[in-house]
């Protein structure tokens, strides 16, 4: 069986800036893989390429036996890739429930005319969308704010909403882009429990995270990027003790002053 996700020698340049350089890794089903690295290491760029927001300059990305790096973003979702956004891309003027219902867009197909005339197919699908959206709302625990306009929610709930909306697309692979950013300790702990629950549903998860406790706890394997290149890959334990990783995070002696973790 081929790997679920294969990233082959991917390079991405923005003008003269090389954001990712020759990154390769693969990803088997049913695992939680963490992606870490200092600020500016190219994590977000890599994520955006896997979710087809933009294509790589060089290299290939394969998902479940299909090449996806030249597809437009909307064609990747039906294949089974969903994502959340670090900078929160919720649909602010829609209710929480409606946000999640958009996640079910591709599992339904009635067109604009059958919607306009409320044909039986459209009505039936609407019912399915509604039920399944509620299931995801319950899964993340947003029942009490389901009817609230998403723009008025606090950050913690918005992160849950992004998760519910992504899950509604029924992904095989879920990309979590700093899902715990801005959450307090308790919320972060709850989020990592949720991540395990999602994995138990058979979803493979790819996590970009700054919160080391979270990423070390949930990941089966961790990939470390520094300055656009993969510098290490292994179990949380291996990665934590890898001298190159430590150097990337803490810098060598001269740079220690300005190092950030």
């Amino acid at each position: 069986m081929p790997d679920l996700l294969e990233v082959k020698n991917v390079t991405r340049k923005f003008g003269g800036v090389v954001a990712n350089k020759g990154v390769s890794f693969s990803f088997e089903s049913g695992k939680v893989i963490g992606l870490i690295g200092p600020n500016g290491a190219g994590k977000s760029t890599l994520f955006n390429m896997v979710s087809a927001i933009f294509p790589p300059t060089e290299g290939e990305i394969w998902f479940a036996g299909k090449r996806i790096d030249r597809l437009p973003a909307f064609k990747v979702s039906p294949l089974g890739i969903a994502r959340t956004f670090q900078n929160l891309q919720v649909f602010k003027r829609m209710t929480v429930l409606e946000n999640v219902m958009v996640g079910l867009h591709t599992s339904t197909s009635s067109g604009i005319l059958s919607a306009a005339f409320k044909l039986p197919k459209a009505k039936k699908e609407e019912e399915t969308i509604y039920q399944q959206a509620w299931e995801e709302i319950e899964f993340v625990g947003l029942e009490d704010v389901a009817a609230v306009e998403a723009g008025s929610l606090p950050l913690g709930k918005l992160r849950l909403l992004e998760l519910a909306r992504a899950l509604a697309t029924k992904p095989q692979l879920l990309l979590l882009d700093e899902i715990a950013a801005g959450l307090n300790h308790q919320e972060t702990a709850e989020m990592s429990d949720l991540i395990f629950k999602v994995r138990d549903r058979g979803v493979s998860i790819f996590v970009v995270e700054h919160d080391m406790d979270l990423v070390m706890r949930v990941s089966d394997r961790i990939i470390v990027l520094d300055q656009g290149e993969k510098i290490a890959e292994g179990t949380p334990n291996e990665v934590q003790n890898d001298p190159r990783v430590i150097e990337a995070y803490l810098g060598n002696d001269e740079e220690k002053e300005e190092a950030t973790v």
Binding site: S51, I53, P72, A73, F74, K75, V76, S77, P78, A82, R83, F85, Q89, V90, F91, K92, R93, M94, E98, N99, M101, V102, G103, L104, H105, T106, T108, S110, G111, I112, A115, A116, A122, E125, E126, I129, R165, T169
Partner: peptide
């Protein structure tokens, strides 16, 4: 309908709606 929600979602975040498959 689902089309209406898709359209409203484009208005709020085009990148998110295309990553939902719209």
């Amino acid at each position: 309908s689902r089309i209406g929600r898709a359209l409203r979602s484009i208005h709020d975040s085009e990148v998110a709606s295309s990553s939902m498959g719209v």
